[in-house]
């Protein structure tokens, strides 16, 4: 097993506040890792650092596929990201949203890109919406478009930043179904989520974070059923009682 993401001693401050305080993490190819934790625990900041949307302390080390991004190298094409608020391009159709990066970054032909997009839209179940604009779609559909847009670039790892938190409850399922299929097909995924059911069922590993640190990591059954730390137990109990 090779580590696609390798993080050593990752730290970041917002002013005097330690958003991340020495995080160590390795993610292997084909692995699905879910990150849990209360808000402000640093889980979103962690994945934004991996995707270079945030700077971090120079003493830290972040490697993607063996390349050190701390040194300023850009390997962003290897990393895809699905945002909580979708961030689709509102002035483009669904197809144009998916095609943009393959056309501009990978310099694919229109034909090639369209073929890939068609396959992806079928895979996430939005083939009928290809020529519509994002505002004409439901939230669940929009998030599935965002996932297809990321998949089109064939990244080695996909980061999910609370992908279902902005959705109406009845739409959460359709997005999780797509993510479950991706996990089955071997996509490497790092998912920040509050969906305990999904984490328990899909994740190879669950990480619990608090106060910028990884408190506990392990198999889902271990974290949910017999956590070793009191803070993990409190959090899991609180969420499950909702």
């Amino acid at each position: 097993m090779t580590a696609i993401v390798s993080i050593k001693n990752l730290s970041k401050q917002f002013g005097n506040f330690d958003a991340l305080a020495g995080v160590n993490l390795e993610i292997n190819e084909g692995e699905v890792v879910c990150i849990l934790g209360p808000s402000g625990s640093g889980k979103s900041t962690l994945i934004r650092c991996i995707n270079q949307l945030e700077d971090f302390d120079s003493a830290s080390e972040v490697k993607i596929g063996g390349i050190d991004i701390t040194a300023g190298k850009t390997v962003r094409a290897d990393v895809g990201m699905v945002f909580q608020s979708f961030n689709l391009f509102p002035h483009m159709t669904i197809r144009e949203n998916i095609n943009l990066a393959p056309l501009r970054v990978k310099r694919m032909s229109e034909q090639q890109a369209n073929a890939i997009a068609d396959g992806l839209m079928r895979r996430v179940g939005i083939a009928a919406q290809a020529e519509k604009y994002p505002s004409q779609l439901s939230g669940g559909q929009q998030q599935r478009v965002a996932i297809a847009r990321v998949l089109a670039m064939e990244p080695r790892v996909i980061l999910f930043d609370e992908p279902t938190s902005a959705l109406d409850p009845e739409m959460v399922g359709e997005v999780l179904d797509v993510m479950r299929d991706m996990a089955k097909s071997g996509v490497t995924m790092l998912v920040v989520t509050h969906e305990m059911g999904f984490a328990r069922q899909v994740a190879d590993r669950v990480i619990f974070m608090d106060a910028g640190k990884i408190v506990e990591a392990g198999k889902p059954a271990q974290i949910f059923d017999e956590p070793s730390q009191q803070r993990t137990r409190d959090f899991v109990n609180a969420v499950l009682q909702q």
Binding site: L53, R76, F83, N87
Partner: peptide
């Protein structure tokens, strides 16, 4: 919105394409 810039960065779009394809048309 800042999310539009972040989506472009996450998709590895160059600065020029970010501007001409996404930001300026909006």
């Amino acid at each position: 919105p800042a999310g539009q810039f972040e989506a472009c960065r996450a998709l590895s779009l160059s600065y020029r394409h970010t501007m001409t394809d996404v930001i300026l048309p909006q």
